[in-house]
Amino acid sequence: MILLTIAAFMIIAILELVPLYKERGKEKRTYLVYLTLFLFSFGLAVLLSLGIRIPSPAKAIEVFIDAIVK
């Protein structure tokens, strides 16, 4: 599973990140934003495939709403 995840992200990186990297002189910001988002989702995917439970943002919103409504 973990290997599969890494392979999938590798393919995406080759398809999209590499061309962006080559053009980074022109669109540095796009490259940086992409890289951040990409690494973030890659991290999450790896954690998920390792079976680590990621806390759901729904819980935080629940707490927030409860705090405001009450």
Partner: peptide, 18 residues
């Protein structure tokens, strides 16, 4: 061609996952 590759990629991932 990138789009086409997406499709191929998607299909191949599913093949692996099957």
């Amino acid at each position: 061609s990138v789009k086409l590759l997406y499709l191929v990629f998607l299909l191949s991932v599913i093949c692996l996952l099957c």
